[in-house]
Design a protein around this nucleic acid. Structure first.
Length: 881
RNA sequence: GCGAGAGUGGCGGAACUGGUAGACGCGCUGGACUUAGGAUCCAGUGGCCUAAAGCUGUGGGGGUUCAAAUCCCCCCUCUCGCACCA
């Protein structure tokens, strides 16, 4: 690697001629930061354009919901991203680093209802407030690419995508059982239900409701998305595992059970077709579409209906909990086991999931624990079909199901086969008889995107009594969300009540028609915003093919782990759709993914007053009642736990650079960050020290002769070496693993070394100052992605003109890394007993000799005979006695 | 229950392919300068021991190795994800 001068000789000369930049002796971040933010903006430093001759680098952080104020999670996420963006830029890449707003969503509506502000005004006010805060942080966004998803110029393209998906059967409407959140007054996708609760809040259960809903056929891509999990080496294993589990592919068979005395057939999905001969009853989910028909007119009808009603009323969490007792009711009907011909009862059971498989199961109580419990409870027959080796199962004596392997019995022609071997054969047998076949089943369901809310992108569909469901013609897009209307005080969408919106004419027959009043899930907007950043101003179509193919895919995506399934899965799906529709050339949107940890802080609480704000706890006592404060675990910052730190307060107090630095220094990005007010002070102090280092030695630094590669300096060779070692370390820490904490620590070490050298200021010669200058230049340059304002200021003070962002990243000199002396550790039986310093030119044998003649080592060896001596290349000698 | 990850000083964290455990920072202790310090600087700071010498030490136990925070086996704890998935 070649040596690059850290100090620019040309710049130096110019600045010496110029009036010298005045420097304050005290570091005052506010002034420095606003100065540089102004200059960056004036120079359009963050603007980026397509340049086919240069290698592009797309760095993206998850865009925020415009809640009005940035929180520590944003600050951390965006600081990590900004460091990478600035670093890559200094490395010479053409870096795109955009920012925008995930601007549709419920909070705007709720705020509107609460305090009478229009969702649009609320949203745009919040956007400008948050934008100001992001600018104050000094992030290097190309604001020319800013977009807000609530803007018709954005969502019109989404409506176009929807129509094209509709044409291809990728968007469809069906009446089905869906997740309903009472609090949000809307339907939720499966991915948005967490532990039976709405992902937005945990205080209200999600219930099941039957209604019409629009779906996107994500399941069409299930297999491909699963397979591609193996081709995303730049993604965390954890996220891929979660996605794989969510897609949930399983191999099994579809088996048809004819209903006795009817033409109806019940299809069942099973992964255990080997146990088919032991199926002694069937269970349907209460939501199963056949249930109502089966029971019509039977004496059981009433009981079944009341059972269904009871079950559906249960919230989803209880319904699917392991602890909920398995319950069911006989439907009054039977069906025939397709292989035994035996008549077996059909039950309706609460534990059967309507949205997995076919919503119906064959029950084999002897070899499935759930079926076993159910059979015991309702006195249903058990038949053993798998006999384990070395013991005999008796149905009447069994206390639990046997789920292991064994030989088939009571299974007709398959008797004696190993159950695992019979899987294929039984499937073939079913196929030959027309009663089933092998199949693959996915846990993933189609993505329900209808939302019965106002503040979202309208679904471009019209309903006509004559023509049915009619897509809005593409040239009539966008279907604009009306802004002038009265919101409903109790939540719920005003659109179905707004005739000026829903009343329209049928695009086909021209007769009166009604618009779809559901809006799209906001995750639809976030599924393609990164594509639009490539060409936010393009109006001839959703995406400018040239620009998009230059920028996509995203090289590095950074965001919270909470989107491991939701947003990341939807985006992978959407990318495939847009690829199939011809808008995109890529199949996967994000090459590398970094999921940063949460920002946590210790909680404090009082036995009577609950969680306390820091100012409510003084000297370990509750300021209201004086009882002892309980210091709790460090938990994710949240308003309800009263452990949030407002980034704005910190910026006001310490400046953006300090906040940026602490966020990175406290822990590596993928881990949780433990907030520590004292730690912030530490970062602030370091920046002060850095500032003083330059301020106090400005004259000597500026007038020092630039260091030449070959004028290796005798007196300060240690500092020269340290400088190059630091460049190497920082480069590798950022490049290979994004470990900014160790990178910062390395620069701190260098700065400590510089200060140690400068202490002997008076004895330093001109050549020494050149070494110091090199070290200072390196420190400032290496830190500039982390703390760009102070670094640009110091860089200018040191006589340079350009902003560091356009200065190349320093490279290190391999020769300068070499130490002429090496510290060798001497061990006896693996224990450190002594250390010696040896010349780096010595060979293993010579070092061994030196070691054995070391007096301290000799003392430890005593007169014991040396059995063996291990020498590790210029590092360690271990003498075994 | 299944799957993944993690347990290192008073705290956040270093130690990259096994080779000086605790870099860097916070906190703490002592000192200097100060009218003062929550400013700054210097020194110290895993534990045991008055100190040195020494011993000991990376959740616990065992193993491999000249050498283990790091590799293997068993156990414990915590975090996250999934959780009646047929």
């Amino acid at each position: 690697m070649s040596t690059r001068r850290c100090s620019g000789a040309g710049n130096l000369e110019m600045s010496l001629k110029q009036e010298r930049v005045m420097m304050q002796s005290k570091y005052e971040p506010e002034g420095v930061e606003s100065k540089w933010q102004r200059r960056w903006r004036a120079e359009g430093l963050f603007k980026v354009t397509e340049d086919m001759s240069r290698e592009k680098y797309y760095l993206l952080e998850m865009f925020p919901y415009p809640s009005g104020k940035i929180h520590m999670g944003h600050v951390r996420n965006y600081t990590i991203g900004d460091v990478v963006a600035r670093y890559k830029r200094m490395q010479g890449k053409n870096v795109i680093h955009p920012m925008g707003w995930d601007a549709f969503g419920l909070p705007a509506e709720n705020a509107a209802i609460e305090n009478g502000t229009h969702p649009a005004k609320w949203t745009y006010d919040n956007i400008s407030a948050m934008k100001r805060q992001l600018e104050r942080m000094g992030f290097s966004y190309d604001w020319d690419r800013e977009l807000a998803t609530c803007d018709p110029s954005y969502y019109r393209w989404e409506q176009l995508f929807f129509l094209e998906m509709y044409e291809r059967g990728l968007a469809y409407k069906k009446r089905t059982h869906v997740n309903w959140c009472e609090k949000c007054q809307t339907v939720l996708a499966n991915e948005q239900v967490e532990e039976g609760r709405c992902w937005r809040h945990s205080d209200k259960e999600v219930t099941i409701k039957e209604m019409d809903s629009w779906f996107l056929r994500i399941t069409r891509y299930a297999d491909e998305m699963l397979e591609f999990c193996e081709r995303l080496p730049g993604w965390p294993e954890r996220v891929l595992t979660m996605q794989k589990n969510w897609i949930g592919k399983s191999y099994g068979a579809l088996i048809r059970f004819p209903v006795a005395g009817s033409d109806e057939v019940i299809e069942v999905f099973t992964t255990r077709q080997d146990t088919l001969f032991g199926a002694t009853f069937l269970c349907l989910a209460p939501e199963h579409p056949l249930v109502k028909e089966l029971i019509r007119g039977l004496p059981q009808e009433r009981d079944v209906l009341s059972f269904i009603e009871r079950t559906l009323k249960m919230d989803r969490f209880m319904r699917t909990s392991d602890f909920t007792e398995k319950e069911g009711v006989f439907s009054g009907r039977n069906c025939l086991n397709p292989v035994t011909g035996e008549k077996i009862p059909i039950y309706i059971a609460n534990f059967v999931l309507f949205d997995y498989g076919t919503g119906a199961i064959m029950a084999v109580p002897t070899h499935d624990q759930r079926d076993f419990e159910f059979a015991r409870k309702y006195g249903l027959p058990l038949r053993v079909v798998i006999q384990p080796e070395g013991r005999t199962l008796h149905p009447e004596k069994m206390t639990e199901a046997y789920v292991g392997e064994g030989a088939l019995i009571n299974s007709g022609r398959f008797d004696g086969m190993r159950n695992t071997d019979a899987m294929e054969d039984i499937a073939d047998y079913l196929k030959s008889r027309g009663s089933g076949e092998k199949t693959v089943n996915y846990r993933l369901r189609d993505w329900g995107i209808s939302r019965q809310r106002y503040w979202g992108a309208p679904i471009p569909i019209v309903y006509c009594d004559k023509c049915g469901t009619v897509p809005v013609p593409k040239d009539q897009l966008p279907v604009v969300l009306p802004l002038e209307l009265q919101l409903r005080p109790n939540g719920g969408s005003p659109l179905p009540f707004e005739s000026s919106f829903y009343m329209t004419n049928c695009p086909i027959c021209g007769g009166p028609a009604r618009r779809e009043t559901d809006t799209m899930d906001t995750f639809v907007e976030s599924s393609w915003y990164f594509d639009r950043y490539a060409c936010p101003d393009y109006d001839k179509g959703p995406l400018d093919p040239e620009r998009v193919s230059y920028w996509m895919p995203v090289d590095q995506y950074i965001g919270g782990i909470e989107h491991a399934i939701l947003h990341l899965l939807y985006s992978r799906f959407f990318t495939r759709v847009l690829n199939d529709l011809g808008y995109l050339k890529v199949r996967e949107p994000f090459t590398n993914l970094l999921t940063q940890g949460m920002v946590c802080k210790e909680i404090e609480s009082c036995p009577t007053h609950g969680y306390l704000y820091p100012q409510e706890s003084t000297g370990g006592k509750c300021s209201r009642c004086g009882s002892d404060v309980i210091r709790g675990a460090s938990l994710k910052m949240s308003k309800s736990k009263k452990n949030v730190v407002d980034p704005q307060d910190l910026i006001d107090r310490y400046g953006a650079d300090t906040v940026r630095m602490f966020c990175l220094f406290a822990s590596p990005p993928e881990r949780d960050l433990e907030w520590n007010d004292k730690g912030v002070e530490g970062s602030f102090r370091f920046l002060h020290r850095l500032w003083r280092l330059v301020a106090d030695n400005r004259e000597q630094l500026i007038s020092s002769v630039p260091l030449d590669a070959d004028n290796a300096h005798e007196s300060l060779s240690g500092l020269h070496r340290k400088t190059h070692q630091t460049i190497k370390k920082v480069t590798e820490d950022i490049e290979n693993r994004f470990h900014f904490n160790t990178a910062i620590a390395a620069v701190m070490e260098l700065v400590n070394d510089i200060n140690r050298v400068i202490e002997k200021k008076d004895s330093l010669e001109a050549g020494d100052w050149a070494v110091v200058r090199e070290a200072v230049d390196a420190s400032v340059t290496l830190l500039s992605p982390v703390v760009p304002h102070i670094c640009d200021e110091l860089w200018e003070v040191l006589g340079n003109r350009a902003c560091l962002l356009s200065v190349p990243w320093p490279s290190y000199n391999e020769a300068a890394l070499k130490e002429e002396k090496r510290l060798v550790v001497l061990q006896v039986n693996g224990k450190v007993r002594s250390r010696i310093e040896v010349s780096a030119s010595l060979g293993d044998e010579e070092i061994k000799e030196l070691a054995l003649s070391d007096s301290r080592l000799k003392q430890f060896i005593g007169d014991r005979p040396v059995k063996k001596t291990v020498v590790v290349q210029k590092k360690l000698v271990n003498v075994v006695v």
